[in-house]
């Protein structure tokens, strides 16, 4: 465990809390992509199957349970909550996210640490998480005005994996640990946020509304 890793996990948790606060306080999920949320549920389920097979960890296990519970709750709210589901931008959330699942599954089948059920699913979840934000970024581009909570949510989500990159650099030098799969997927994931980060920081510095081209 190192400070980068702890800060990264807390940032990830904060992003989810921001989204839950937005949905519960405004009773609205406008600007949030249900497809991205669906993909996150898939990411967490396929990644945290080892909850049952591996020894529980005082740190990881609570986080895994919280990530699973919150991501499922968010999808539940957006699909079934009578007030919230009316505010879902169904017609602008158009990204074909199913096209993301198959390539990740095929890639996981061929590139994984060990060819076992758990490891292939774990690799699938790593690859899927890297691209899961795409429907959300596409939805933001078509949103006329992005509310602050949504902007902060996406920023924190991007920042957490960027912090993981720092954690991996630290671990490479300090603990001589090499993890190609999450490294490359994490780089791709963070790179996808590059233009969002640019416009988010620009809008924050000019104290103006966040607007994606």
């Amino acid at each position: 465990m190192n400070a980068f890793r702890l800060l990264a996990d807390l940032t990830h948790l904060l992003s989810i809390i921001i989204l839950l606060v937005k949905i519960r306080t405004t009773k609205s999920c406008a600007g949030i992509s249900l497809k991205t949320q669906d993909l996150y549920v898939l990411v967490f389920i396929s990644r945290y199957l080892d909850l049952f097979t591996r020894p529980l960890s005082l740190y990881n296990t609570p986080f895994k349970l919280v990530f699973l519970a919150t991501s499922i709750t968010i999808v539940y709210y957006m699909r079934y909550h009578k007030v919230v589901k009316q505010t879902y931008n169904k017609d602008s959330d158009t990204f074909k996210h199913y096209f993301l699942i198959l390539p990740c599954a095929v890639l996981a089948f061929f590139i994984n640490p060990k060819f076992t059920f758990i490891e292939v699913l774990w690799s699938f979840s790593i690859y899927l998480e890297a691209v899961a934000i795409l429907p959300q970024l596409v939805l933001l581009q078509s949103s006329s005005n992005i509310d602050n909570l949504t902007g902060n949510y996406v920023f924190m989500l991007g920042a957490y994996r960027a912090l993981y990159l720092l954690n991996w650099i630290y671990r490479f030098f300090a603990e001589d640990v090499v993890r190609w799969i999450p490294w490359i997927a994490g780089l791709v994931q963070t790179a996808l946020y590059a233009d969002f980060f640019y416009y988010y920081i620009k809008s924050w510095r000019n104290n103006e509304r966040l607007k994606l081209p």
Binding site: H12, N60, F63, P113, W122, V178, R179, P182
Partner: peptide
């Protein structure tokens, strides 16, 4: 450097 399969990260 070892490519360990145990996942101690989230």
């Amino acid at each position: 450097a070892d490519q360990e399969a145990t996942h101690d990260e989230l």
